[in-house]
């Protein structure tokens, strides 16, 4: 049992730690919000799932408690749904507020913040309704 835990848990834990550190480094070093969002959301979801799997192994094989395993599965399942949702909401809010993506040299990738707002819309023709009303 010890061998099984060592063989399974350590590689998973190292993978999870690589996810977490890579995501955090990406979040400090990448040039704009959208790239940081990409780095953070992917690694957060992946890291939580992989490290949750390590804890799940211990919950099943060491503690042998079904309740602990169920709670861990709840946390993992909840993160699997909420982390991408939160990232989507964040990106959409940033686009709607007119935050323009930039490339590595700080050059804007769109011409104006109106273009960013347009990209963030659920229906791209929605702004014409506003103009007609005015």
């Amino acid at each position: 049992m010890e061998l099984l835990l060592g063989v399974l848990a350590w590689p998973l834990a190292i993978l999870g730690m690589i996810f977490l550190i890579a995501g955090a480094v990406g979040m400090t070093r990448l040039p704009d919000l959208y790239t940081r969002l990409h780095a953070a959301s992917v690694t957060d979801t992946g890291g939580t799932l992989v490290i949750g799997l390590v804890l799940l192994l211990y919950a099943v094989f060491v503690y042998g408690s079904a309740m602990v395993a169920i709670k861990l599965l709840l946390i993992m399942g909840f993160t699997l749904f909420t982390a991408p949702t939160a990232s989507h909401v964040l990106a959409k809010a940033a686009l709607l507020s007119g935050l323009v993506p930039v490339d590595g040299k700080g050059e804007p990738l769109l011409e104006s913040s109106e273009q960013a707002t347009q990209l963030g819309r659920s229906r791209p023709d929605a702004s014409s309704a506003v103009q007609e009303k005015r």
């Binding site: 995501g23 979040m27 919000l33 939580t48 490290i51 804890l55 861990l72 939160a86």
Partner: peptide, 25 residues
Amino acid sequence: TAFDRLLAVNSFGTKTVLLIAVAGF
């Protein structure tokens, strides 16, 4: 921007969840 801070806070929260779970074990 405020969105950067929010992203960081959200990510920090996710890591806190993991840290609490790991600290329990």
